[in-house]
Design a protein around this nucleic acid. Structure first.
Lengths: 215, 215
DNA sequence: TTATTTTTGGGGGTTTACCCGAAGTTTTAT
DNA sequence: ATAAAACTTCGGGTAAACCCCCAAAAATAA
């Protein structure tokens, strides 16, 4: 008998999940949680073998909940469930002790198989999720190049000018607001174009937004 | 007897929903669809009283599906279901013929009540959804300026030009790639500036990125 | 201390973006 | 079906952006 705790803030989903599990003789729904903290509370009082854990949980993030579970209750298996096949979610929660990761578009049979596999101590991932992980590993180099790692360092003034450009101010307006010459602003803009390898201000702003350089 | 079609791309969710409805003697799950077009196909061949329709459906948007249903099958009631309590979604799909709107964190009892209410020809909304609608009506002016609901509609050509602007192409390059005059491209840019209320191309691209208009 | 980067700015020129107007076509609404 | 609205297509003119050259004071790093 596998004692299961379902943790998801979508009641409708929990109801449905319970209906599925109820038909199986070897599975028992020991409890239901609609937020992070109540999962921890429940584990204190009850004997649970496996937690069906939604990654996007309110109150306390699913990843934190998972971390807490594997730290305090190493025997309790965690099967993560999410709407999203996003590499960041998958790798995050796997690094925090989850034994499997399912998407919510997984079918009934695969769900049951995943539960039994994880409860037996093995790992289980949706096919799509496996692909995502592989892709993530393959693009590791590319990802690190894209992120802040090799990102050109911008000076204080350049950042100021960049922010004002992104707010649709003209060069003259930027000059006035910073109390410097129009030529100076153009000089900063030119440096930005060169550093960020952009062809024009549109490129500057696109790159700035993509790299969260504004505000 | 209420014949129901469940339309949601999350298999797990559909399975669960079916498990719930199966226990009710007056409800019958006539079919399941995992994308927009198959909903329309199913209605052609089968007698259905009510469609449980996910707003965020792949292939064909839930809103378009709803429009199609109410146009071709006015007797079929649509009960919209969504993860998100967003004013734009709610008002959009209600304007396209849906008789009710539920969130996925709705409980089993409320789900059954909603189905029976809508099937009887009345409307049903989650409490949270009702609040959202009210809030939306009160902030109508603010909403029209901010949310996607009343977002200016861009023409095919305008979107093409916008995407190319965001890719840092000059007007001449855009003209060459679209086989139109430089002046025509500038005209489209001008329309975009007016519609999106931007001062320059930087603003266009910022707004485009914020509203996910690219790609 | 010395070297490097940053910030500041000028002169002069080319290219691009933006504004005003306008005509023919297509789409939408009544 | 017919009027209204929107879309696509351009020309002429001006303001702004972008580019090249350069260089000195100030701050920062070695």
């Amino acid at each position: 008998m596998i004692n299961i705790l379902i943790a998801d803030d979508h009641t409708m989903f929990v109801d449905g999940m319970e209906s599925i599990l109820k038909t199986e003789v070897d599975l028992f729904v020991a409890g239901r949680s609609y937020d992070g903290p109540s999962v921890i509370d429940f584990l204190k009082e009850n004997k649970v073998n496996l937690v069906l854990l939604d990654v996007n949980l309110p109150g306390m993030n699913g990843i934190e909940v998972c971390k807490e579970i594997t730290a305090s209750y190493p025997d309790v298996k965690v099967l993560a469930i999410s709407m999203f096949n996003e590499e960041s979610f998958v790798s995050e929660i796997l690094n925090n002790g989850a034994k499997g990761y399912l998407l919510k578009n997984t079918g009934r049979e695969e769900l049951l198989k995943a539960i039994r596999t994880v409860a037996a101590g093995e790992s289980y991932f949706s096919k799509d999720v496996t692909e995502t992980i592989m892709k993530g590993l393959m693009n590791q180099r590319k990802a690190s190049a894209k992120s802040n790692a090799f990102f050109p360092k911008l000076s204080r003034r350049e950042k100021e000018v960049l922010k004002l450009i992104a707010q649709e101010f003209t060069t003259q307006e930027i000059a006035d607001s910073l109390f410097i010459s129009l030529k100076t602003v153009e000089s900063h803009r030119s440096s930005l174009l060169s550093k960020l390898n952009a062809r024009n201000s549109v490129g500057l702003v696109r790159i700035a937004i993509e790299n969260d350089l504004l505000q």
